[in-house]
């Protein structure tokens, strides 16, 4: 019984201590070292404390949705542009255009959300696999890559869905034909991004179709035998939206944080994680806007047919 009381007392102490300060609460997906560095830098510059809830893109959305009766998040930084589209359509985002967003390409900003940075979707290959280097997406359907290709599942990976949408928008017929060929060539679709990359790092498979490039660059920097190829027929960007929630009581602080993330300092931190900075005038530590041939497509329009696209893909792969 004594232990029970001690535990309860500890619990109460936790409750009380949490209500003391009024920091900016940010829910963030993606690399934690980046969000921590941004939070620290902002705190040093403005004196405003930032509290981070760091999880996956799906989980920060789920937490935000569950908390609606009594919201806590002032801002969210997601890994999935589609989440921002949904929240914007539901009118839950605060409009803000940062003065620092001038050099952000128009595809990466709207009235209510702006990209922190972006990843590009690419082919990742194990350099020890001895496979020929692919040049186009469709090369991976060739016999040389039989039973060697993995791909993140568009129904669990937002970036893989973007790639699929981009390729389908560009050329519907040949894209679906290519996926049918990939399927008969033994492609596996083992889950979200990590699940597709891991077997390639481990040498169980050779190539990822649609890897998130900055994670691969990170692995390469750690000495892994892995590298990135951008297919010549174009790639798709997966931007990471910064959103201010309409329910926030700390709008001024939130806007200041957006400004900081888009400042020279903030963007340099983004670049240091091998992400493509949102601003075109900041030097990337990886192929930049001028080195990539980007397939432009209307994300909003694609979002309407997303379910059908995902289902068509799933059906093709289940055969």
């Amino acid at each position: 019984m004594k232990k029970l009381l001690v535990a309860l007392a500890t619990g109460l102490t936790f409750c009380v201590s949490a209500q003391a300060a009024e920091p900016l609460i940010v829910y963030s997906a993606g690399p934690k070292p980046l969000s921590s560095a941004l939070a620290k830098g902002f705190e040093a510059e403005t004196g405003i404390a930032v509290e981070l809830f760091q999880s996956s893109a799906g989980k920060i959305m789920a937490r935000y949705q569950s908390e609606k009766a009594n919201p806590h998040a002032d801002m969210m930084i997601s890994a999935a542009w589609s989440h921002a589209i949904t929240l914007d359509a539901a009118d839950e985002l605060l409009a803000y255009t940062s003065p620092n967003a001038k050099k952000v390409p128009s595809a990466l900003k709207t009235k209510t959300y702006v990209a922190q940075g972006a990843a590009a979707l690419a082919i990742a290959y194990n350099t020890k696999s001895g496979l020929p280097l692919p040049h186009k997406w469709a090369d991976l359907a060739k016999a040389a890559y039989q039973d060697q290709v993995t791909m993140p599942d568009p129904s669990s990976s937002g970036s893989a869905l973007s790639l699929l949408q981009g390729l389908v928008t560009k050329d519907q017929k040949s894209t679906w034909a290519m996926f049918a060929d990939l399927k008969s060539n033994g492609i596996i679709v083992p889950g979200a991004n990590k699940a597709a990359l891991t077997p390639v790092l481990q040498g169980s498979r050779g190539v990822v179709f649609g890897a998130v490039d900055y994670i691969v660059f990170g692995s390469k920097a750690k000495g892994e035998s892995i590298d990135v190829i951008y297919p010549t027929d174009g790639t798709v960007l997966a931007p990471r939206p910064i959103m201010i929630m309409k329910s926030t009581p700390h709008a001024a602080a939130a806007k200041a944080f957006v400004d900081y993330i888009l400042s020279d300092k903030g963007q340099a931190l983004v670049a240091s994680r091998f992400l493509l900075p949102a601003r075109t005038d900041i030097k990337a530590k990886r192929p930049g806007y001028n080195d990539l041939s980007i397939i432009e497509f209307d994300q909003l329009k694609a979002a309407h047919s997303a379910t059908a696209t995902k289902q068509k893909f799933a059906k093709l792969m289940a055969q």
Partner: peptide, 25 residues
């Protein structure tokens, strides 16, 4: 999720999880 997905084996929880974490949530 890890082993079953590789041979197309779906269970109820997979479907639940899709709704919990995959867009649209």
């Amino acid at each position: 999720e890890i082993l079953g997905r590789r041979f197309g084996f779906e269970v109820i929880v997979t479907a639940i999880h899709d709704k919990f974490t995959n867009w649209p949530i």
